[in-house]
Design a protein around this nucleic acid. Structure first.
Lengths: 225, 225
DNA sequence: GGCTATCAGATTGTCGACAATCTAATGAGC
DNA sequence: GCTCATTAGATTGTCGACAATCTGATAGCC
């Protein structure tokens, strides 16, 4: 049994159900690499593993299909969507556009971005500790904050979806020998450029950052036609 | 009975089911204004109207929720998502970004855009006939082709979703006294700029076009907090 | 031997019934 | 008259069973 139903010990809070939603469990399994791209996704099998009926599993699969994590070839069953090189490029190029758009809005509206310093500082601490996981969390928080500060709800929701798949890619990638300090050092200049209202420089810096993050060897994706 | 199950007379072709999917029926009802923003969406009621059980209706509602056409306040039921002025602005501003991004890719890759002439010509014919519906169809085809030619699958799928909601807005809007010829005339200069590889001009032209299309009076949305 | 028809298996699609949960109205108590 | 507990109603969530459909293997026929 690979996936187990996760039950929290916390009492109910507000409208959060005691049991973690089926979609969250499966999503987690996909994002942490337990269910790699190409893995078949069968309703009945998952229902048995999770001790629920097919209905909630079906609903969860549908959500993940909308997320773009699962694909369904009619009558050949569903499976974890295989990643292609083109798709990775599309993800990162779109991410670049979103960040540039966010910066334009932030500069135009003179939004206060002091929050970004916090995330940047956290990244340096993580880098010193060689704590890759913590660095990634802080990095994600930094970039999500940038999008959120642009005050564009639609873009933020698209960003969250985009980042799901970026997390999936990062989980598959061999990130053994990355220079954590170098990643952390990328960020303060971006903040500085935004605060100086130098839109062009800020966009240029963040584009370089995203492009360097998008490098991935095809063989790391498993298959890549 | 407002919505009726639509059954085509055509025999089955390939994997296309005889009956139109429940999601399509409900989506159509939302987009053509039959189910206006705020209308409650109740599984059992729709199931009875469409003569199906709750399962397919449930699935359809979930799809439309992912599309952003339906929202669900926990335990208060689901309803057609009310449009706010901010949301309309976000939709059109994102559309503008997508089109600018598409033009950049098209110009950089020297993509052949001759297909756009066809759609533009169709728009002039429709404008001469004062055929607003035909004009809208051709206009949508023009802009979708622009995105498609950018060869970015992810953006194209996001565009399709975006345009769903734009269609919804256009259906609500009172478009009685629009100058159809003026709308048609917007497009040839855009094509010309792209073919001359004048990226800046092309983006500027299409931004103006989108911004003029985004004008809407708040009262036309029904409610707009 | 190669081709086609038939059948078993697997998977998704649909159904009706029941359970869980919240909202809103009703009524008792102060 | 106001507040709070109780209850009826509405709505969504979950379940097990059955139906429809395709895939792939097997057997029969030329």
């Amino acid at each position: 049994m690979i996936i187990e139903p996760q039950v929290t010990d916390m009492a109910r809070i507000e409208n959060v159900p005691l049991r973690v939603s089926v979609a969250d469990i499966i999503r987690q399994a996909i994002l942490n690499g337990t269910m790699r791209p190409g893995t078949p996704v069968v309703e009945m099998a998952l229902a048995e593993q999770l001790n629920v009926s097919r209905a909630p599993v079906r609903e969860a699969i549908q959500i993940l299909e909308a997320d773009g994590l699962i694909e369904s070839e009619p009558y050949k069953g569903k499976r974890v969507k295989p990643l292609t090189l083109k798709e990775v490029e599309e993800l990162y190029s779109l991410r670049e556009q979103f960040e540039a758009f966010a910066i334009r809005r932030i500069v135009e509206r003179q939004v206060d971005v002091s929050e970004l310093h916090t995330h940047s500082d956290t990244m340096f601490v993580a880098a010193e500790r060689s704590d890759l996981a913590a660095l990634n969390v802080a990095d994600e928080a930094f970039h999500r904050a940038l999008i959120r500060l642009a005050d564009h709800g639609l873009m933020l929701s698209l960003w969250d979806n985009l980042y799901l798949r970026i997390r999936q890619i990062m989980a598959l990638r061999n990130s053994a020998n990355r220079d954590l300090r170098a990643v952390a050092r990328n960020h303060p200049p971006i903040i500085a450029a935004i605060e100086k209202r130098d839109m062009i420089l800020a966009i240029s810096l963040i584009s370089d950052h995203t492009r360097s993050a998008s490098q991935i060897a095809p063989e790391e994706l498993g298959i890549a036609p």
